[in-house]
Structure formats: C-alpha cells, structure tokens
Write a protein that binds this DNA or RNA. Sequence first.
DNA 1: CCATTAACTTGAA
DNA 2: TTCAAGTTAATGG
Length: 198
Amino acid sequence: MLVDIDLLLSYDGLIETFNTSDIIFEEGEVPKFYYQVITGSVKLNHITEDNRELIQSILKDGQSVCELLSFIDKTFPVNAIAISDCTIIKVPKDRFLQLMDDHRQAAKDVQRFVAERLYHKFIMMQNNASKYSHVRIEGMLKYFKSFTNDQSPYSYEVPLTRKQLASITGLRIETVIRSVKKMESEKILQIKNRKIYF
DNA sequence: CCATTAACTTGAA
DNA sequence: TTCAAGTTAATGG
C-alpha cells in the first residue's frame, strides 16, 4: 500500500466498490478526492478525436490514481475506469493535504511514487515514439513486469488483452497480434492459451 | 444452458 | 494500416 489505509480512514477516507467497467471519475471533472486502489485494477484513458482509446496507465492494488491532482488545481485529463471489480479509498483533497503535512513518511512515499510514475512516463514516451511495433510492445511489457518480483524469462503472465496492449502503445490490434507472434518466434516471449508470458 | 457481445485471428487489399 | 469475415472466449439472462 502506498499510504496506510487506516491512516487514510482517519482523515475521512471513504471506501467504495466498483464493478468492471464502472467509471470512477471522468475527464474534465474537478478533482475533489485523492484516490487509492485497495484491490483490483483501474485504467486511465482518453478517447481521441477519431474515437480510439488511448490508455495512459493502469493502476493496481495499493497504488494511487492520479494523485498529482491532489496537489494542483486542474481538471482530470483522463477517465478512470475499473477494469476488474475493485475497492477504492478516497480522501477529500484538503484532508489528504493535511495528512501529507502531518505524516512525513506518507508524504515521502507519495512523493516517491509520483517520481516513479513520471520516470516511467519518460521511458514509455520514448518507446512509443519508435516506429517499430516490437519496440513499443516490448517496452510496455518491461514496464509492467518491472513491478513484479520474479524477473526470470517468461515468468510474467501479461494481464493485458491484445486490445489493451494496442490502446496503450497506439498500435492497431492486428499489428499487436502479428507483432506478438513474431516476438514469440524470436523467443522474446511465449504464448500459451492466448496469454502472453514475458 | 443459450444468446449476445467482446476479443482474437487471418487473409486480402 | 484498413476491411471483412470467421473463430473463440466471456458475459448476461
């Protein structure tokens, strides 16, 4: 957990549950809370002019969702949508800021998490600027795998559908399918029952 | 269980 | 990359 749940609760935290595909907040809304995932996963997305989905990131157990907006007064730049059943705790912005003032360690943890996300944003940007689809895909797989302990080859079952992978890398779904197959033949990853192991 | 939808796959421009 | 079409998996009754 990024910030301890009991601590969040003691600052007026509210626990809410969502079902798959429920909207947690929408692009353009004014943020009023700090959000942290307790269980489940959440995607942050944006729909482009030509009606395609761009997934900005996926957050799971213990991570905060768009926490940066607790620190500035801007509207949400993305939608947050549950991609599994999940429980989320939210804390009013002003109470959260008070918590940050009162608890040095929690503030450090959040600061670190923000920094980490920003760092990965740089890397993902650079990957996704590549004209080679396999570079984009492998970059994304590395990013997701980096959060797990077991770093041995093929040990990571990729929790993304081909469609989601396409929406994150900005590639077409057919391109993802063909590229992933090529990567399998090059032993970069394995496929079992349609699932990708990296 | 069946019907419907979403995801995946392939072949062909 | 797009389109069309077919297969398979997941979801909702």
